[in-house]
C-alpha cells in the first residue's frame, strides 16, 4: 500500500472511530478500578517494517549488516546480541535473502548454545533455515518470533527476567536503528512518526537503569543506560521527529549496539 491509500486508511479509521466511540465510555486512567499489567508489549521489528513497506519501497538489502564477532562470555551481552540477531533475521526477510536468513539461523543456534538453550532453540533454527530455502517468508517471520519467545520464556522459567528483558532490548534497538536508516534515506512525516515510541524508551531506560546501578555493573550496561536516557530526551513529543532528530536517534542506537560486541 502506498502513501495515498495509507492516508485514506487513516482517514477512514478516524471516521470509523468517531462512529464507534459513542458506544464505549472513555477510560479514566487516573481512577482505573482494575489492574494495570506492569509490562509493555514490545513489538517485533516486522510490525514496523510492514508500515515502511506500505509507505514506499525501502532498500532492505542496504540494511543488512554482519554484526561484529564477540568473544564476550557475559550472558547479559550475549542476550543483547541474541535479540539483535533476531531483528537482523527480520531485516533479511524484508530483503528476501534466503542465504542471509540461513546464515542468521545458524548464528542463532551458536548464540543459543552460549546461553545453554540450544536444545530449545534448535528446532526453530532448523525451521528458519528450511523456510528460507522454501522462500516461505511468513513462516520465517513466525519462527523468528517464536525463537525469541522461546528464549525469553526459558530465561523467565529460570527466573532470569533480566536476561529476558535484554533480549527484547537488543531486538528493539536494532529495529530502531534500521528504521532510522530507512527514514534517513527518504524522510517523510509518516515514516518519522514510527519512531514515536516514548513508552518503550521509558520502559527500557527504567530496566537498564536499575541493572546498571547494581554493584559491579559492567561498563557496557552503564553506557547503554546513558544512551537510552539521551534517546528519551529526543523521543518525547507526540510530533514526528525532524531529520536532525532522526539522525540523533540513529547515532545513539548505533553507539548502543556497538556496546553489545565489545
Amino acid at each position: 500500500m502506498k502513501s495515498s491509500s495509507f492516508l485514506s486508511l487513516s482517514f477512514a479509521s478516524l471516521l470509523a472511530v468517531s462512529a464507534h466511540a459513542n458506544e464505549v465510555a472513555p477510560l479514566d486512567l487516573a481512577s482505573f478500578p482494575g489492574e494495570l499489567i506492569n509490562e509493555v508489549v514490545v513489538p517485533v521489528p516486522a510490525e514496523i517494517f510492514s508500515v515502511l513497506d506500505k509507505l514506499g519501497e525501502p532498500n532492505w538489502e542496504e540494511a543488512i549488516v554482519e554484526q561484529p564477532k564477540s568473544e564476550s562470555q557475559d550472558r547479559r551481552q550475549i542476550a543483547l546480541q541474541f535479540g539483535c540477531l533476531i531483528a537482523d533475521g527480520f531485516v533479511a526477510v524484508q530483503a528476501q535473502s534466503p542465504a542471509e536468513i540461513q546464515n542468521i539461523g545458524r548464528r542463532v543456534l551458536d548464540l543459543s548454545e552460549s546461553l545453554g538453550l540450544a536444545s530449545s532453540v534448535r528446532p526453530h533454527c532448523l525451521s528458519i533455515i528450511e523456510a528460507a530455502g522454501d522462500k516461505d517468508w511468513n513462516r520465517v517471520r513466525r519462527e523468528l518470533d517464536l525463537t525469541e519467545l522461546t528464549v525469553r520464556e526459558t530465561m523467565e522459567e529460570l527466573r532470569d527476567d533480566e536476561l529476558s528483558n535484554l533480549v527484547s532490548l537488543g531486538g528493539w534497538l536494532r529495529g530502531t536503528q534500521v528504521v532510522t536508516q530507512v527514514v534517513t534515506a527518504s524522510y517523510s512525516n509518516d515514516k518519522a512518526e514510527l519512531l514515536n515510541q516514548p513508552g518503550l524508551v521509558n520502559h527500557f531506560q527504567g530496566l537498564v537503569s536499575t541493572m546498571s546501578q547494581q554493584p559491579n555493573s559492567p561498563r557496557f550496561l552503564r553506557q547503554i543506560s546513558t544512551g537510552l536516557a539521551d534517546m528519551n530526551r529526543v523521543i518525547k513529543a507526540n510530533a514526528p521527529l525532524n531529520p536532525d532528530q532522526i539522525l540523533e536517534v540513529r547515532q545513539l542506537s548505533t553507539q548502543m549496539l556497538a556496546q553489545f560486541y565489545l
Binding site: 494495570l36 499489567i37 508489549v41
Partner: peptide
C-alpha cells in the same frame, strides 16, 4: 478489568 499498555503503529 485488566489494562495492558501497547505500542501501536499508524498504517
Amino acid at each position: 478489568p485488566l489494562l495492558i499498555r501497547h505500542q501501536l503503529f499508524r498504517g
